[in-house]
């Protein structure tokens, strides 16, 4: 589904991703973990070209999206993204937040989008907030809205960039529950997170990144119980 070849990214002289190659298959739930500054967020943001790679190619469903001629907006319409800081649009109501993109990109008519928004809000138990503004919601509620806002575009893959890192501890659960449900429904997911429990429970594969490299990857069980690389062992001994 997503094929990354020899991806490098540097900011100025600082090399953040160093020649990464990776393949993500449909239905996989890939969890990316690693210390801060390891390049995991940059890796995720390269997948939908929020960061332009310095070198390498990324192929999504047989389209080489790193090709400058590709209409990146069309590609992004099929890749949902959820951010650490939610990034809901504060000037719009929740309903408008959800329906803006489907309507403007021609995916749905306004009436259809409204219906879809209603169904999505019901799914995350926030039906009564449709006409509220983002600032009236708690962090957990905002992030659930951000997830369904991305889902409204009917994406084929969902990218999560530390979706629970900015939340109060007691709100982490409600967001993870929505993500688990999404995983059960078969969505392809790439999740950058510090939630080891989530990685173990939901992930189908865990990538460990440090210094711009993927140092180790394995199934969650093998990864957490029998880490191979010394750096992984050190990391896990600190966080678990």
């Amino acid at each position: 589904m997503i094929d990354v070849k020899n991806l490098s990214k540097s900011f100025g002289d600082h090399l953040v991703l160093d020649d990464i190659s990776e393949h993500i298959s449909p239905g996989e739930k890939v969890v990316v973990i690693g210390p801060s500054g390891s390049g995991k967020s940059t890796f995720l943001r390269c997948l939908n070209l929020l960061e332009a790679p310095t070198k390498g190619t990324i192929t999504f469903e047989n389209t080489v999206i790193t090709d400058p001629k590709v209409k990146i907006d069309k590609v992004r319409q099929q890749m949902g993204m959820v951010f650490q800081h939610f990034n809901l649009f504060p000037n719009m109501t929740i309903r408008q937040n959800i329906t803006l993109a489907p309507v403007r990109t021609g995916l749905m008519k306004q009436a259809e989008a409204d219906e879809a928004a209603e169904a999505l809000l019901k799914r995350v138990d926030l039906s009564d907030k449709a006409e509220a503004y983002p600032n009236q919601l708690s962090g957990g509620q905002k992030q659930r809205i951000a997830i369904v806002r991305a889902l409204a575009m009917k994406p084929k893959v969902m990218l999560f960039d530390e979706p629970t890192s900015a939340l109060d501890p007691e709100m982490v659960g409600e967001v993870l529950d929505v993500m688990k449900e999404l995983a059960h429904d078969g969505m392809t997911m790439v999740v950058v997170t510090h939630e080891m429990g989530f990685a173990r429970e939901v992930g189908s594969r865990v990538l460990f990144m440090d210094g711009g490299h993927i140092l180790e990857q394995n199934s969650p069980y093998e990864f957490f119980d029998h880490p191979q690389h010394p750096r992984t062992q050190l990391f896990l001994s600190k966080v678990l």
């Binding site: 907006d73 590609v75 890749m79 990034n87 649009f89 575009m153």
Partner: peptide, 11 residues
């Protein structure tokens, strides 16, 4: 982040 969110939705 606001324009990133907009662009990530395909706008």
């Amino acid at each position: 982040g606001q324009s990133e969110a907009g662009r990530s939705l395909g706008l």
